[in-house]
Computed example of a mutant assay.
Amino acid sequence: MRADAQRNRDRIVEVARELFRARGFDAVSMDEVAKGAGVGPGTLYRHFPTKESLYDAIIEAWSEKVNGAVDRALALEAPARVRLLAWLSDYAAMLTEHKGAAARITGALGDPGSPFAAKCQTYLGANQRLIEGMDSALRPGANAMQISRLVGGVAAVADNSELPADSVTAMLAVIADGLLASVNA
């Protein structure tokens, strides 16, 4: 890619990230992104044919961030509950980084045709790694989809309300206690 084209692409992604974060995915038009980035619509659509492809570009590094968070939680020298809560808290925080993302991503779980399918697979994979890394600390039958939907539901509520952080933490603790094979883990 030519240097000027790369600069345009980077600027588009930067502007879109800020707009999506501030107002949410659904509230931002592609025309607004183009104007904010100082490029024409043709340039925008040449790089990103759909709004979903633009959103994907915004969170390319996100997959590494998700996997890094689950790795950090699993590496903690702490009881299972502390490790689990570390991951659930990071997971909920990542879902709420972009306004409206928690509900969109959680709602797309299990839909391979969704424009958010890759993001869903990243979260499902991270939750599966958590299950495998926690050995027998989690209750039998707990699965990645359940964890994704439960935390996604809490994150969606947090994203669309004025809940204080301690209320979100309390809900995640209830989920953690339900996932653990023993509350004393």
Rank of each mutant, 00 (worst) to 15 (best):
P164K: 15
L179N: 05
V82N: 08
A185M: 11
L85R: 13
G38E: 08
V33G: 01
E14G: 14
S63E: 02
Q121D: 09
V174S: 11
L76E: 14
G133D: 03
A103D: 03
P140W: 02
G36P: 02
K119L: 11
S161H: 08
V174T: 15
A118E: 05
A101W: 02
L138R: 07
M1K: 08
R2V: 05
D111M: 04
G110E: 10
R11L: 10
N184H: 12
N184W: 09
N127L: 11
A101H: 05
D111Q: 11
L180E: 12
V151F: 07
D135T: 12
T122Y: 01
A73L: 04
K119H: 09
M1Q: 12
G100T: 04
P164A: 14
E52H: 15
V28P: 02
E162W: 12
G107V: 06
D56S: 01
K119V: 08
L88F: 14
N184Q: 06
N67T: 02
A27T: 02
S114E: 04
S89V: 01
F48L: 09
G133K: 10
L95I: 03
L109F: 04
D71T: 06
E14N: 15
L180W: 15
L109V: 12
R72S: 09
G107R: 03
R21E: 13
A185I: 03
H98I: 12
L150A: 15
V154Y: 15
M94H: 14
S136F: 00
T122E: 06
G38F: 11
N184F: 07
E60C: 02
G40D: 13
L19V: 07
L85K: 05
D90E: 13
I105R: 07
I58P: 06
A137Q: 06
V157A: 08
A69V: 11
M134S: 05
E32L: 14
N160T: 01
I147Q: 12
Y91L: 00
G100S: 01
V39K: 05
Q128P: 03
T122V: 07
Y123Q: 00
V151Q: 08
A117T: 03
A144G: 04
S89C: 00
Y45T: 11
L163Q: 09
P164F: 10
L163N: 07
L150H: 05
D71L: 04
Y123V: 00
T96Y: 00
N143K: 10
A126V: 05
L54W: 00
G40L: 08
R72E: 15
L84T: 00
A69E: 01
D71K: 08
S63M: 08
T50A: 01
L172K: 01
L74K: 13
A108T: 00
A37P: 13
A27G: 01
G107D: 04
L172N: 13
A142R: 15
T96D: 03
L19C: 05
D177K: 04
V82W: 09
T50R: 08
D166N: 03
M30L: 14
F116W: 06
L172D: 06
M1H: 12
I147S: 11
S148G: 05
A142H: 06
D90T: 04
L150W: 09
Y91Q: 12
Y123F: 01
G153R: 00
L180A: 09
E64W: 03
K35N: 08
A22Y: 09
A93V: 03
W87D: 03
A126F: 02
D90A: 13
D135I: 02
A176N: 07
S182R: 15
F25T: 00
R2A: 14
